[in-house]
């Protein structure tokens, strides 16, 4: 909770991913042309790619200050398992930085010409998918915590790992827009989230232990 509160104190930083998301989303029509048919077809993929990029922004330096100012050592010394501390940190970051993107997503999608229903499905895929992406990305952030210039590298490390979520997130929305039943794909996205939630906090904790030499 404290992390969420702290993030709200620094509202400017917390708003950066969502503003970035909006700008990327606006850039696409400008680059692709304003043809409504085309925009409607590419909207799910476009919103998802923009969302992934803004998650990258939210991940940048997630653990860097914690490593530099010794907070991480306090976590290591504390009675709480490191994976739980890490999980709460990632959750807080998701709420403050990525949740706005999830809420903004359907608005952008409506602007690109998706129907209301499809935009809601898109929001559901974003809500189910971005936490998984956030957890995967946090692993990259943790590995790069002591690196001096991490941000460019982060994308190279974690974007390939995001691909399944991108495929299913955008694909589900497109399938729904095409009139298909999507509960199975939704269930798969949910399954990936559960798998990520159970495995990745431990991996992130291991990464933090490694990079601090513990």
């Amino acid at each position: 909770m404290r992390d969420v509160a702290l993030n709200w104190n620094d509202l400017g930083a917390a708003m950066r991913p969502v503003m970035f998301f909006a700008l990327v989303a606006v850039s696409f029509p400008l680059g692709l042309g304003a043809d409504p048919q085309l925009l409607r077809e590419v909207a799910p993929g476009l919103v998802w790619v923009a969302a992934l990029l803004s998650v990258l922004l939210a991940l940048d330096g997630l653990f860097r200050d914690d490593v530099l100012d010794g907070t991480l050592e306090q976590w290591l010394l504390s009675d709480l398992p490191l994976s739980l501390t890490v999980l709460s940190r990632v959750t807080a970051q998701w709420i403050a930085h990525v949740l706005p993107v999830v809420l903004m997503g359907p608005l952008v999608a409506l602007g690109l010409g998706l129907t209301f229903d499809t935009a809601l499905i898109l929001m559901a895929t974003l809500a189910l998918g971005t936490p998984t992406v956030m957890l995967l990305g946090s692993l990259g952030s943790a590995l790069l915590a002591p690196a001096r210039s991490g941000s460019g590298l982060l994308g190279l490390l974690v974007l390939p790992l995001f691909i399944p979520i991108l495929v299913f997130g955008a694909g589900t929305t497109m399938a729904y827009a095409g009139g298909a039943e999507v509960s199975a794909q939704m269930a798969l996205l949910g399954a990936m989230f559960v798998a990520a939630l159970s495995l990745l906090p431990a991996a992130i904790a291991a990464a933090l232990r490694i990079v601090t030499g513990g």
């Binding site: 790069l144 690196a147 991490g150 590298l153 190279l156 490390l157 991996a203 990079v211």
Partner: peptide, 21 residues
């Protein structure tokens, strides 16, 4: 990605970080 990670990290931890990745 694996190749890029090693030089970005201090050398004593880089090996295990790459392994985890």
């Amino acid at each position: 990605g694996g190749m890029a990670l090693r030089p970005a990290l201090p050398s004593d931890v880089a090996g295990r970080a790459v392994a985890l990745l």
